[in-house]
Design a protein around this nucleic acid. Structure first.
Length: 397
DNA sequence: CCATTAATAT
DNA sequence: AATATTAATG
């Protein structure tokens, strides 16, 4: 009988040891995320200490039942995995040691943007995340990867409210500063591959390099795509951040209908952004705001469209929240919601009312004050809003 | 010129 | 099908 116990004990020791090692490995991994996962780190650390204590103080009897959160893995090798995956293996005592290679899918594409207005997608609150992050971990975890991609604060970054003070007077013309990317490719046949007929084994690499360099980059094109016949601009992709700015500007101006592309662009203060691009985006925005989903009539079309429109504002919820928080600050959430859809409905007082003492000043004041249209529009729009949020402004056309 | 609408390309 | 770019129009 004794031997049996001894065996058991040895085995336990071994396991405990392995476990400690695994824990340490784990801790090394999450060390990077210290800021984001403080508790996690603490937890692991404590666990390690506990185990070590147990090991060192082995003489005492002690069953090692002490570990509460050990549930997921008793085996040592196994535990290390599941970095991001939400997998919830119930417990699996002796799993194989599956090593997850951290597949860092670095998406290098579209870094040209990140230069100017890069930003972490949705992780704005760095400090706030401390204790209430249990949910949506996967979400911002994903974003973590973005961090290393864009570690530096470009210039204005976000915080439009505050940044406004800076107010870098971009040239009114159209941002000649950083034309961002316009270099590569001819519009037609092949946009990004092809290039050099010779070899160019790594199109991907080249593209990456180019992007990093900053698109137009220092001039010398590696490839001979001298065909400047580019009639087609490189598509401007509206990153969430850009869109956020867009919305922000829109709000300041008091709705999509009260705002003109130029004004929007100026408010956005994104260099390299052309008037046309804003214009285009505005067009799309308006389209979407008016017709959430013409195709499928939602059931219960009759009533309770609610703010379908709001939803229709294809603004991603995250954005929406962010913007709402950012802009409305503390004004009731609901009002914020309205604000969003406001483009068409809200904004009764035409003038966007100074939101912050910071800016305003002379935002769009000058320019051409003679636009009488604007007034008409603004006065007109609110009427549509009426009380019922049906927003079906064009019931019968 | 500038803003809006329509057409076109990706 | 959606979205950005270009052209046309007021």
């Amino acid at each position: 009988m004794n031997r049996f116990k001894i065996m058991d004990f040895a085995e336990k020791m071994q396991r405990c040891h392995e476990y400690v090692e695994a824990l340490e490995a784990e801790r090394r991994k999450i060390q990077v995320f210290e800021r984001e996962l403080p508790l996690c780190l603490e937890l692991v650390t404590q666990a390690i200490e506990a185990c070590k204590r147990e090991l060192s103080g082995t003489t005492a009897d002690h069953n090692m039942h002490g570990q509460p959160e050990c549930s997921e893995q008793t085996s040592s090798e196994g535990p290390v995995l599941e970095e991001f995956i939400p997998i919830k293996r119930t417990h699996s005592s002796d799993d194989d040691e599956n090593d997850n290679n951290h597949d860092d899918d670095d998406d290098d594409l579209q870094e040209q943007q990140s230069q100017n207005n890069n930003n972490n997608k949705r992780n704005k609150s760095n400090s706030s995340i401390s204790n209430n992050d249990h949910k949506k971990k996967s979400d911002w975890l994903r974003s973590v990867q973005l961090w290393n991609q864009s570690p530096d604060p470009p210039q204005k970054q976000d915080l439009p409210r505050k940044a406004a003070v800076t107010e870098v007077k971009r040239n009114g013309a159209g941002g000649a500063f950083q034309p961002f990317h316009r270099e590569k490719s001819v519009g037609k046949s092949s946009n990004q591959a092809i290039k050099a007929p010779t070899t160019v084994p790594a199109s991907a690499i080249s593209s990456t390099a180019g992007a990093v360099t900053g698109g137009t980059g220092g001039g010398g094109n590696k490839r001979e795509d001298k065909e400047e016949g580019n009639q087609r601009k490189q598509r401007r992709c509206w990153s969430p951040e850009l869109h956020r700015r867009f919305l922000h500007a829109l709000q300041q101006l008091g709705g999509s209908h009260a705002s003109t592309p130029k004004q929007i662009r100026e408010l956005m203060k994104v260099d390299g952004l052309t008037n046309d691009e804003v214009k285009s985006h505005l067009q799309k925005y308006r389209l979407h705001t008016r017709r959430p989903s013409p195709t499928i009539h939602n059931n219960s079309n009759q009533q309770a469209p609610q703010f379908v429109v709001v939803g229709g504002i294809w603004v991603p919820p995250a954005e929406y929240a962010a913007v709402a928080a950012t802009i409305s600050g503390e004004t009731s959430t609901i009002s914020a919601a309205n604000g969003m859809c406001a483009p068409i409905a809200a904004a009764p007082p035409a003038v966007p009312q100074n939101r912050q003492h910071t800016q305003s000043e002379h935002l769009q004041s000058e320019g051409r004050g003679s636009r009488s249209e604007r007034g008409a529009h603004s006065s007109n729009s609110p009427s549509t809003s009426s009380s019922t949020h049906t927003t079906t402004t064009s019931p019968l056309f």
